[in-house]
Design a binder for these strands. Sequence first.
RNA 1: GCGCCCGUAGCUCAGUCUGGACAGAGCAUCGGACUACGAAUCCGUGUGUCGGGGGUUCAAAUCCCUCCGGGCGCGCCA
Length: 555
Amino acid sequence: MHLKKTIHDLITASANRSKEAGELTFETIPAFEVEATKHPEHGDLAANLALVLAKQAKMPPRKVAEVIINHLAAPEGMLLKMEIAGPGFINFFIADSYWRRVISEIHRLGPAYGNSEMGAGVKVQVEFVSANPTGPLHIGHGRGAALGDALANLLAAAGHTVEREYYINDVGNQILTLGKSLYFRLRELSGEAVEFPADGYQGGYMKDLARDYLAQGQAAPGPEPHADDLLRLGRYAGDVILDEIKQDLNDFGVRFDHWFSETELYRQHLVDQSFTLLQEQGYLYEQDGALWFRATEFGDEKDRVVRRSNGAFTYFASDVAYHLHKFRRGFDRVVDIWGADHHGYAPRLQAAAQALGFTGRLQVILVQLVSLLRQGEPVAMTTRGGTFVTLREVMDEVGKDAARFIFLTRRPDAQLEFDLEVAKQQSSDNPVYYVQYAHARLASVFRQAAAQGIEIEELDPARFSRLILPEELAILKMLANYPELVEGAARNREPHRITYFLTELAAQLHSYYYKHRFISDDVELTQARFWLVSSVKTVLAHGLAILGVEAPETM
RNA sequence: GCGCCCGUAGCUCAGUCUGGACAGAGCAUCGGACUACGAAUCCGUGUGUCGGGGGUUCAAAUCCCUCCGGGCGCGCCA
């Protein structure tokens, strides 16, 4: 029912007819907008063509609008009226009966209403969380997880083929540091007064890990550990922590299609291959014993080292290879979701993607870290410092659905204040319950109807004309607009638009519910209202599914 | 110092990309509504130098410049 596009086409046709009739002069029709209006007195949709065409036509905007209206031929029964308003807007008032058709469409499509073919044939990868396995996921990772998962759902709803991926950074110093941290905790447990290294991971979880390690009957290394021992301990710790991360994400409702290990890049010699590709095009050079990538060729501030003078590859080298691999796997678009503290890293990766020939196909979304408060006091969150609130704790305290919903009520690039105490206290008037309650309430209505022996009869569009209340029309319009909203949210990679829509739809529903009874002696009206609110229930469930939040039948 | 993000109602935030007609919501405040399909709800109530200043435009919260606040980043670390 792409109403905006339909109106847009009608106006274009009208303008051309006006030109042929000699009532309007212009070379080509300029780009113009058909927008939903903010105020009911302006109708449902407004077009600004007359305003942008006035100069070319050498006529006042309102005069242009008049000509266009005179030549506009809308399908029978679609428009109630057109008006010229303000500086020269053309306002369109859509007929009520036209809005009512959305019920039939939702009934026909069921849970698929809201899906589209916009991204048909486009394969997208969303990579998110990708936290290093050196400690439990914290609340900031939770935000990235909620965003990435919802975005993946959203893109899928818009017709894309989507894969979710988690990149495991398991090569390099941090594994050694992790091993060292575990080692020192083990020594402590055996009663030695050792000084824990400043660069170690100080979180309490390392102590638990050490205890579990011993409980499994494994022996702690001696006072003079070999590097091999530390590496072995590091890998052990990394594996255990990664398992916990997987469990946390699973409980948070996030499922990844692939867990991609950095080690795999080296196993497949992808780093060498990406170097060769860059070398062939002259994008690599040696200086001071190190190998550099000409990132400045592609707009980055400075060139970047990919192989250090000691022979070790940089993290960046891995990422170049990783993204080469991503695109080789056939993804048309790759979306990376990172914490905003990595934003300085984006230009060099974009540069690499361009150098490898994948210009315009990588998108980096930066999600601002959550500034966490507890009773108004900021809580420091560093993995090494060890004071942080884990995603697990947040899930336990405020619930999975509430946490996800809160994360998804903000734009990714806006900083988010999350006060645990407030979030807990507000649990009864948290917006997520407002939306879920609307869904559960409708389920309850149908249970009530069934209890009264009232059946939901076959859809009969003739009865829709009974839906005449302002509340009913407001709801119909929202429902009709939903597919377009999903497409817009997907195109802009903004799941939070769904969150806001759902809150508004729930508000409309609650208000409608409170003012008017759905079940009455009037059979036709009752049935018409059933179909309407059943449509609302379908759309609420669809939107909540995108957010990864439950749509409960009871609460 | 340079770069990126943010600055909208008492608080938390939509709206900015794709400029439009008097700038929105939730919370908080205050006052109402359950013998009726679920009161986790509804109805009413006040709220603004859209950080400041310039510019572009018929039209600027939105685009451009500049300044001021806050956050983050500027390694042959990850």
